[in-house]
Amino acid sequence: MSSIFSKIISGEIPSYKIAEDEKHIAFLDAMPLVKGHTLVVPKKEVDLIFDLDSEDYKDLWAFTQDIAKQIKKAIPCKRVGIAVVGLEVPHAHIHLVPLNSMDDLNFKNVRLIFSPEEYKEIQKSIINA
């Protein structure tokens, strides 16, 4: 079940990586809802998040918590929202979205487009948080 995320994990497709460990990777969403929208992905190819074994599931959420705290420090927002949708890519993943209103987490919103320089600046600010 190779997906675009598998290609990002293997380095075949570039990304704006925020963090990585042996089991997970976090990177900026290529089509973000808001500035700082980040995806957290297990490296294990599993389609549905609830199909992860219990230990991997717990580890994913612990990694996600750390990334959410970095985003909150780096991006002005009231809180960091979480969404697990999984319809767009058949690889388990968590959306971390900086929120200032409920509308910020509406996947029907027009997605933002940033220049490579803007993505790098956002990436740098979250990494350094």
Rank of each mutant, 00 (worst) to 15 (best):
V46Y: 03
V46L: 08
D47F: 13
D47K: 14
I49L: 05
I49V: 07
F50Y: 15
F50S: 11
F50G: 04
D51F: 15
D51H: 14
L52V: 03
L52F: 02
L52A: 05
D53P: 10
D53G: 05
E55R: 10
D56G: 01
Y57T: 03
Y57E: 04
K58W: 14
W61L: 10
W61C: 06
A62D: 15
F63V: 07
F63K: 02
T64F: 01
T64N: 00
T64Q: 02
T64S: 09
D66N: 13
D66G: 11
D66Q: 12
I67R: 01
K69Q: 14
I71N: 08
K73N: 13
K73G: 09
A74S: 08
A74T: 05
A74I: 09
I75M: 04
I75E: 01
I75P: 03
I75Y: 02
I75C: 07
P76E: 07
P76Y: 08
K78A: 15
K78D: 11
V80A: 03
V80Q: 02
I82T: 15
I82H: 13
A83G: 02
V84R: 02
V84F: 06
V84I: 14
V85G: 04
V85F: 10
L87I: 12
E88I: 07
E88C: 04
P90H: 06
P90R: 07
P90D: 07
H91M: 09
H91Q: 12
A92M: 00
H93Y: 05
H93G: 01
H93W: 03
I94L: 04
H95L: 01
H95C: 01
L96F: 03
L96Y: 00
P98A: 10
L99T: 07
N100C: 07
M102K: 13
M102C: 11
D103G: 11
D103W: 09
D104M: 03
N106D: 13
F107P: 05
F107M: 06
F107S: 03
F107Q: 02
F107N: 01
K108C: 13
K108N: 14
N109G: 10
N109E: 11
V110F: 15
V110W: 13
R111E: 12
R111F: 15
R111N: 12
L112N: 09
L112V: 10
I113P: 09
F114L: 10
P116Y: 11
E117R: 08
E118N: 12
Y119P: 03
Y119S: 09
Y119V: 09
